[in-house]
Simulated assay, not measured.
Amino acid sequence: MSHDNSAENPKNIDRANNAVSWDNSIRLFLQQAGSSSPTPGGGSVAAIVAALGASMTSMVGNLSQGDKFAAIHERIAEIIGRMNRLTGEYEQLLHADISSFNAYLEALKLPKNTEEEKTLRRAALHEAALHAIEVPLRLMESCRDGLAEAASIAEECNKNVISDLGIGVILFEAAAQSALLTVEINLASFKDEERKRSFEQKVSALTQEIGELKIRALEVTRKRIAGDMA
C-alpha cells in the first residue's frame, strides 16, 4: 500500500470500498487479487502468504508426533500453538492494512481552506502514513517469529515432510520481503526524518535476521533431503 498516489486515482477510492474477508474461498480471493480493484492488494496477499507459511509449519509439527519424536514433543506442541496464534495475527494485519489505507483516504478528504484546516489535515495524513509503515513492519516481525520457530525444528522434525517445512520457511521469507516493499514505498514519502531513520534501522536489522534464518533453515532442509542428516 503506497500513499504516493493522488486522491483522484479511482483505484484509491475503490480500495476503501472493498473489504477482504479471511473466510473468502481461495478462488474468490484469487479473482479479487487479479482484478482491476486494488483490494486485496500487496499487504493482504503478504498476510495470506505468511499464513500459508504458518500452515506448512503447523502441518510438519502435527506429523512429527508419537514415540519417535518424544524428545521434541513439548517443543512441537508449543510450535503448533504458536502457528495458530500467528495465523490470527496475520488475519488482523490483513484488515489493519485495509484500515490504514481507509484512514489515509479519509485524511485526504479533509478540508484545507484555512490554516487550521491545513494543519489538521497534515496531522491526519502523517498519522495515516505512520500506520501504513507500522502495519507491514509488524508483519515482518511476525514472519521473523514464524521463521525462527520453523528453523528450530528443522533438524529433528519428521524427515518425510522436511520439504514442507522448507516451503513454510520460503513462504515466511517471501511474505516478509513483500511487507518490506510496502514499508519502503511508504517511508520514501514520510516527512518525519528522525522517525524515518529509526524505522530504516529497524527494517535493516529485521531484514538481515530474516535472511539468516531462512538460509540456516534451508541448509538443514536440503541436507536432510540429500540424506546428509538423519
Rank of each mutant, 00 (worst) to 15 (best):
L108D: 05
G53A: 14
A124R: 10
K109H: 08
N102A: 13
Q92C: 10
G66V: 07
E134R: 07
K112T: 07
E89C: 11
A132V: 09
K112A: 09
A123E: 14
E106L: 14
G41W: 00
L139Q: 03
L120D: 02
E134W: 09
N113A: 14
M140T: 05
L130D: 02
L94M: 12
I80T: 06
S44E: 04
H126I: 10
V49I: 08
S64D: 12
A129E: 14
A46P: 12
Q31G: 12
A128V: 02
L86S: 03
G88V: 00
I98F: 11
M83I: 14
R75C: 00
F101E: 04
T114Y: 08
G34A: 05
M56A: 09
K109A: 15
R138A: 13
A123C: 11
T87D: 14
R122P: 08
R122A: 08
P111Y: 15
L63R: 04
T87F: 06
A46D: 06
F29N: 09
N102K: 02
S55V: 02
M59R: 03
V45L: 11
S100G: 12
P38K: 02
I48N: 07
H131F: 11
Q31M: 15
M59W: 04
S64C: 14
A47I: 00
A123R: 10
S100K: 05
Q32M: 11
A132W: 00
G81I: 10
T57F: 09
Y90R: 04
A50F: 01
A103K: 15
Q32N: 07
H126M: 14
V135A: 03
F69P: 05
S36E: 02
A47H: 00
L108G: 07
L93K: 00
Y104V: 02
A123P: 02
R82P: 03
L52T: 03
C143T: 07
A107N: 05
G146I: 04
R138N: 15
G42A: 12
L105Q: 15
V45T: 06
S36I: 11
A123I: 01
V135Q: 11
L63V: 09
I80S: 09
P111C: 01
N84W: 11
E116W: 13
K109G: 13
F101L: 00
L52E: 13
I80K: 12
G43K: 01
Q31S: 13
A132Q: 08
M140Y: 05
E74W: 11
A33Y: 00
L108W: 12
S37M: 06
R75E: 14
E74T: 06
L139Y: 00
G61V: 01
F69N: 06
V49F: 00
Q92M: 04
N84I: 15
R85Q: 11
L105H: 14
